[in-house]
């Protein structure tokens, strides 16, 4: 067998391997080139194209795009109607994030602290399956639930809580002719859609809290409520922030949910969609889509400072 100090066997592949092994940097560069080219050209290229368009404007008489650099289009964002859209979307995203965190926490806490073995696997799948199952179908499910003759109406009737529902619908802002045509409906669907994105990072953050820490806290005389407030919640916070990145980004960009369940008021996503489609105002659509980007970049910067990336 190989008694030589140097193995001299040859072949085209082996010689190519010789070259690559001798230059590890070249190898990394070769690995990186295709994905970077793809993402750089296709994705970043498109983003730049989008950004460029936001500095164009539209001729008010002909409706044609004027390819001259201007900040006019961004100025249009500050019209009251457009500010309304932005404010409404951000408020909705914030509410969905807050309530989502509150509902997600017990599930994540139970899964991280108490579930073991099979239960743990079941919990995990119970969160993963909705996360990955069809987005549209899940929106559709709420159309079934909130419909006038649907399960919610049936359930309130059976339990005699219909007056309660009616009273809610009679409220200003959150109410409306029916749940499926109200802010409440839109909110419920968003909450439902993005809840799994909140549960998983919180669970991941909680899993990293060693059990001995809780015992130490109890040992030092903390009541369970105190341990929760002083130890668990601060340590779960990066997970909440990580989850909120998703709930925020997803709500900011969604144009389908409010279209199917909700009052006829617009959200950023819808505004972008209609502006680029029927209105043909690509510059304003582009400027509008810079809003969620800007919000997310700011959000990510804050989240990074809070250590949320480790919980992703």
């Amino acid at each position: 067998m190989a008694a030589l100090p140097i193995d001299g066997r040859d072949g085209a592949l082996r010689r190519l391997s010789d070259r690559l092994v001798a230059r590890p940097r070249l190898l990394v560069a070769l690995f990186l080139a295709p994905p970077l080219l793809w993402l750089g050209v296709v994705y970043l290229g498109s983003l730049v194209a989008l950004l460029a368009q936001s500095f164009f404007s539209i001729d008010e008489f002909s409706g044609l795009i004027v390819r001259e650099w201007t900040l006019k289009t961004y100025g249009e964002l500050f019209r009251p109607a457009n500010l309304d859209i932005i404010g409404r979307t951000v408020t909705m995203a914030a509410l969905v994030t807050l309530v989502g965190a509150v509902i997600a926490f017990p599930i994540a806490y139970y899964a991280a602290r108490y579930a073991r073995g099979r239960t743990k696997a079941l919990f995990y799948l119970a969160v993963m399956l909705p996360l990955w199952s069809s987005y549209l179908v899940r929106v559709y499910a709420w159309k079934l639930i909130l419909a006038r003759e649907g399960i919610l109406a049936w359930a309130t009737e059976r339990t005699g809580t219909t007056p309660l529902l009616d009273a809610w619908l009679a409220l200003p802002v959150v109410g409306g002719p029916s749940l499926s045509i109200s802010y409440t409906g839109t909110f419920l669907v968003f909450l439902y859609l993005w809840l799994p994105f909140m549960i998983l990072p919180i669970q991941a953050a909680l899993e990293r809290v060693p059990g001995s820490l809780l015992e130490a806290s109890a040992d030092l005389g903390a009541r369970p409520g105190q341990t929760l407030r002083k130890v668990i919640l601060p340590l779960a916070l990066p997970g909440v922030v990580a989850g909120s990145i998703f709930t925020f980004a997803l709500t900011l960009g969604d144009y389908i949910t409010p279209q199917i369940v909700g009052s006829s008021t617009l959200y950023i996503g819808q505004a972008v969609y209609t502006l680029q489609g029927t209105a043909g105002n690509i510059p304003l659509a582009a400027a509008f889509s810079v809003v969620p980007i800007a919000i997310m970049v700011g959000y990510l910067a804050v989240a990074k400072r809070m250590g949320a990336f480790d919980a992703l």
Binding site: P5, I6, S17, D18
Partner: peptide
């Protein structure tokens, strides 16, 4: 050198 053979640029799989 390994048994007199210079090892500059010789990859691991060619060394005895």
């Amino acid at each position: 050198e390994i048994f007199g053979a210079p090892m500059t640029g010789v990859p691991p799989y060619r060394r005895s």
